[in-house]
Design a binder for these strands. Structure first.
Lengths: 226, 226
DNA sequence: CCGTCATGTAGACGACGTCAACTTATCGCG
DNA sequence: CGCGATAAGTTGACGTCGTCTACATGACGG
């Protein structure tokens, strides 16, 4: 290599100085897979999904451009790995709403809705990656991404089932009702992160009023009819 | 009206065979801008937005790779032009629901919802292009795309305002209420076209039941409280 | 008839994803 | 302890893409 551009001194974690191996630090880089995911998550937040190139991520991790192929079979697979982290996080915030308000189903419902909206606005680019058309989302491919997505969805289904049993939410196929409720939340978030509600975002007060209205609409839409 | 694709001859319209000029055939190609949009719409339907490359569209229109720059300042602008056609079409189907059921607001509401869902499923790739992150959607850029989008949205606002006046839909800022209602529809469609509801689509009967539930949920969510 | 401008063309550049072939470091086994 | 197998990383190449610049062409107005 003619010149090695100093690029990223903060890349490789110095191959085991001390002789005792507290942590394995297995191979050349140490843990390139995790480093790529971390760099990807950072870059996603800063510059959006378009900026997530294999070569760019490799650069950020301080390795050569094809090194990622040892850990991800394609760019799609790398994006899927990043998106997967998003679903894990989304599930966490939904579970938190549950643990804080599980006894009051209406409160649980509304807080879960707010948590979903909060996630979408707080991790807008991640949200777009998770639900947009940035990578293939076919069954059979990226199974752990599907698992993570289903895991997040399951927290909504749990909420709906519990709310049906307590009489808050209408009876009917829990899947269908969950989707109907989810759709309201998701539609609002999807429109917002894709800048289709700019006339709202310019007005933070109206935005938060609308977000609250959406959360209530979400509940009223599936509330048990008297 | 580039939306209908009556099977283009796929190449240049033969530079003046006969000597008499029946149709003007104005410039070199004739009407490259419309040809590019038409080819784009066709390709979008067949292969999705990823396939919409400037060079590929030029190929389909039978011109050299940089010719499109005479009519669109960038790939983004070309995508915006194609998306714009989608908003025009969407507005049309929403207006049709209006004209057929304008006297019965509940019917109008439900048919508009079905029309929206029908558009999303019938023109899934177009829908993704219109609402996904495939191009910049900043205010000030692609103004005619914004106009078309706002035109389609306005049909929903009109519906909400009329329904508020007749007491079908809750009072409140018409924008906020429109967005809440729109969100339900849009979320369902967005999830579906992005293949997040595959367990539904495998089951056409459940799918249509859920679509109906979503349309009703959309109304119940904003119905005037008794 | 001629100049001008809109329209279309050709070449080049740097980015990208991916493949094949190569090198290097680590670990398991005798 | 040493050695081969193999996981991890590198280099070079190929074809694609969007876009820039310079150039060619054809239609229309004076």
């Amino acid at each position: 290599m003619p010149f090695k551009t100093p690029r990223k001194p903060a890349a490789r974690p110095a191959p085991r100085k001390g002789r005792r191996k507290a942590v394995p630090e297995p191979y050349h880089h140490g843990n390139l897979r995790e480093a790529l995911l971390a760099a990807g998550i950072q870059l996603l937040k800063e510059q959006g999904a378009e900026a997530l190139g294999l070569r760019e991520l490799a650069r950020q991790a301080g390795v050569s451009r094809t090194a990622p192929y040892r850990h991800f079979e394609s760019r799609d697979a790398l994006l899927a790995g990043i998106a997967e982290q998003g679903f894990v996080k989304l599930r966490e915030v939904l579970l938190e709403a549950r643990h804080q308000h599980e006894s009051d189903h209406e409160r649980w419902f509304l807080e879960a809705a707010r948590a979903y909206i909060g996630f979408a606005f707080g991790y807008a680019e991640h949200f777009k990656l998770m639900f947009g058309g940035y990578m293939k989302y076919e069954p059979g491919q990226h199974t752990s991404l599907h698992d993570a997505g289903n895991g997040a969805f399951q927290t909504l289904v749990d909420l709906i089932v519990a709310s049906q049993e307590s009489g808050l939410v209408m009876k009917g196929d829990p899947m269908a009702v969950s989707i109907a409720a989810w759709s309201t939340l998701h539609g609002f978030c999807s429109l917002a992160v894709h800048k289709r509600l700019d006339f709202l975002v310019e007005n933070p007060e109206l935005l938060s009023k609308t977000a609250d209205l959406v959360a209530r609409t979400c509940l009223e839409g599936v509330r048990a009819r008297k």
